[in-house]
Design a binder for these strands. Structure first.
Lengths: 264, 264
DNA sequence: CCGTATTTGTTCGTATGTATT
DNA sequence: CAATACATACGAACAAATACG
């Protein structure tokens, strides 16, 4: 069976884009009317072909301007610590970004008092409706939103004296270290969960993702436990899948510059 | 500005689908002609709305049958070992699946001799064109393709006497344990890389993913190193993002039944 | 600032092909 | 074979966003 015409046009455009024949140097593709003439098809058929390219993330269309090829993002590689004594997430982030010659920026923490529900109630072993403190931070690399993170603490930690949890400031020791210093409650282990899912509206907006849900987000959920096995905090971090990779080591491995992996 | 009509229709359909008013129990949605009449729009406009739902993965269309809502897959949670002495991947897989009351199946290994290139050459520190052995296995859960895995070994291991690497059989100790027994080369550490990317053609076909690249695959690349820091093998595992989650623990954490996390 | 040309976005209509029942 | 339902393709008109003189 012969391929549909819009599919053939899409494939031809894809090849010409990947060879650099079209769209090189930020130039727009030929307009829909020009493509209609050159392919001897109707404008709607050309639009079907372009829509296929848009869905695959190869091009973007801008009303009044034209159709442009998207440039690939240089991904950042996050090191996942398998060692509970590794440096805290907050401090590790900036140094890791700078080690790759890029500029990190972290927003000031945004504090909210919320009621435990769903994930937080389950992970922190709290009744639904119990108060939790959430600390939220947005993280940028070279000015581009790269990930964001929300950590939930049981309100009882504040009531027991760890009052800086509800201050909108970063602490040099990190909040987890602060809790250990003030309350003697130490995080001796954590469980990480990873999942990949479509972005919600807020994520689509913040990360400037295409609104068709084509780019997934990676969500990591880290629950920290104290000496008696009680959950101390749960940290939810969200990474757009188009600009993030992860690396983790176990046992003895030779050191190596962390870098993004190309396809091969 | 008012929302476009196709967008309004899509939103209305989405709400009716999520409330169960439409498509419940495997029933098809109303046909495009019926929707055209009920929304007082053209069939093309209704199709634009349906295309939006298809792109979001809410429905699938089948020629001659109708439009159906997709049911959510119950994800499987893979435990990532942070301990180099944990049981081998191959043996761990089946027991972990059975622990969640599901039926694992692993295909017989498919062996190929290939030339190192790109990823394998870089990770195994081999010249391009050097021979490598690839062992490939497909993994199923309840009969559904769930992941597949390819491990690359330098050909010199076979030449040094580890000849079972090129036999299409599973070994009770796993290949890595076999190499240790025969050659005395022990894997003392490994580096895992994680990335999320659109599926290629083979993956789309094997996992029966929609051909618009909407569902990403999660790729993990595990490179194992021996006592002298030389790479021993590299294992590439591919998981469709719509049916896989991961969990990893560090330090001391209370035991818990691994389960998929819902959104909340 | 304004008006015009260009370009993509939306919506309609119609006809024909292909897959399934 | 016939009926139904989605897929493809064409043509047309107007709206909205943008760029430019």
């Amino acid at each position: 069976m012969r391929e549909s015409m819009w599919r053939q046009i899409a494939e031809d455009l894809r090849l010409k884009i990947e060879s650099g024949e079209l769209g090189a140097g930020g130039m727009p593709l030929p307009s829909e009317l020009e493509l209609r003439d050159s392919y001897r098809a109707s404008r709607n058929t050309v639009r079907d072909a372009i829509k296929w390219l848009v869905t695959r993330g190869l091009v973007v269309t801008r009303p009044g301007q034209g159709t442009f090829v998207v440039q690939k993002i240089d991904p950042f590689v996050t090191t996942l610590s398998t060692d509970i004594n590794a440096p805290r997430e907050s401090t590790a982030y900036a140094s890791e970004v700078m080690a790759s010659s890029r500029i990190p920026k972290v927003s000031d923490p945004r504090i909210e008092i919320q009621q435990a529900s769903g994930l937080t109630a389950a992970e922190l072993h709290l009744q639904h409706g119990t108060s939790v403190v959430s600390r939220h931070q947005d993280r940028f690399i070279d000015g581009v939103p790269w990930s964001f993170q929300t950590t939930f603490y049981p309100m009882r930690l504040v009531e027991q004296g760890a009052e800086w949890i509800i201050r909108a400031q970063d602490l040099p020791t990190g909040i987890v270290g602060y809790i250990e210093n003030v309350l003697g409650i130490k995080e001796v282990g954590c469980r990480d969960r990873f999942l990949v899912r479509p972005p919600d509206g807020a994520e689509t907006n913040f990360f400037k993702l295409p609104d068709d849900g084509r780019i997934s987000v990676i969500e990591t959920i880290r629950t920290g436990y104290d000496q008696v096995g009680e959950p101390l905090r749960v940290t939810v971090t969200t990474y757009p899948a188009d600009r993030n990779q992860f690396v983790m080591t176990a046992g003895k491995v030779p050191a190596e510059q962390t870098r993004a992996l190309p396809r091969g």
